[in-house]
Write a protein that binds this DNA or RNA. Structure first.
Lengths: 165, 165
DNA sequence: CGCTTCCTTCAGAAAATTGTGAAGTTAAGG
DNA sequence: CCTTAACTTCACAATTTTCTGAAGGAAGCG
């Protein structure tokens, strides 16, 4: 289209993507509003939006934005910035920080490991069930150790493919 | 304790583990009943239980067992077996098949990739948002390719540690 | 120093999810 | 072939979750 440079973004196309991608995230277990907010940020050209912009695009109240953003910052998917000299806050999805958040179920896995350890000792390490749980525990420990290395390889791969972006 | 060989399993300790581990799985996004059923199977010495046994241990109706099991079999966390010459069904957690299910968000990731691809082309590969999404897409493709290799390394590691179990 | 703007918190209404009982279906065993 | 045991499906009730409007609080700007 001739107008592509200035208008560029067809709001309808953006919205379609946002809602579609958010729906996938919801199916993966994320709450609806955090998912929609995250998808909106991901599809913004700046990689960041203000609370008001989010509210308008998603047709939700400031309260809903606030709740979603609280969740997203707590899980490190999004960071908040103060626009200098303004009461406005910008919410930003960083280039790669959120990849880690998505895969980095660190705290979660730690707790699973704790629960499994307790299971092994309370059911007995010498019982069939105890052995099965010990093996499960070993699996998680293994994954944990591998993920760090994998993310490092990703960083290398990413730089090769996209430059230091 | 002297009775350890025959009684062995303190039902209360088992229940404590089951409910505790299930709660962790719930926090990770799994539905309550599937989580409880899965934890119960995991902590059983045979690695399998009948519908009736599950209903009794978890104090839930046959309908709830049925629903939970449907979910678990669909996600390949559990397999079902017919007890030969009986109407009873046994639900089993296999040694390692479920590890894969847990990490193998294959179908899910495929759909994310689809949604992202659509986003890249509808927002334009030459826009900042498009580039960000292309990079995200590359990340998922990278992870997908790495996970297979990681599971292979796990199998080797597992055999070394536990024998061919 | 007070006004205004923006964000957050809170209580409650609306909506979605979840588990049960009851009825229905399939298949073993006499 | 009929009986009966076991699992599944369905509709509904109860709980839980989710989002909103309204009130409250912090921070720039005149």
């Amino acid at each position: 289209m001739a107008e592509s440079k200035v208008v560029g973004r067809d709001p309808e196309a953006v919205s379609r993507f946002v809602e579609g991608f958010a729906a996938q995230l919801v199916e993966a277990g994320m709450q609806r509003m955090p998912a929609r907010v995250f998808a909106a940020l991901l599809s913004s050209d700046e990689g960041s939006m203000t609370s008001a912009e989010l509210g308008e695009q998603l047709q939700i109240s400031p309260a809903a934005v606030s709740g979603a953003v609280r969740y997203l910052t707590m899980t490190h998917m999004v960071s908040r910035e103060r626009e200098p000299g303004s009461r406005r806050e910008r919410y930003r999805v960083h280039g790669d920080q959120w990849y880690e958040a998505l895969t980095n179920r660190e705290a979660l896995i730690k707790r699973w490991e704790g629960a499994l350890r307790e299971g092994v000792s309370s059911l007995g390490a010498d019982t069939p069930a105890g052995r099965r749980m010990a093996e499960t525990l070993a699996f998680f420990e293994f994954v944990e150790s591998e993920v760090a290395a994998m993310m490092e390889r990703w960083r290398v791969h990413r730089e090769k493919t996209f430059g230091q972006g």
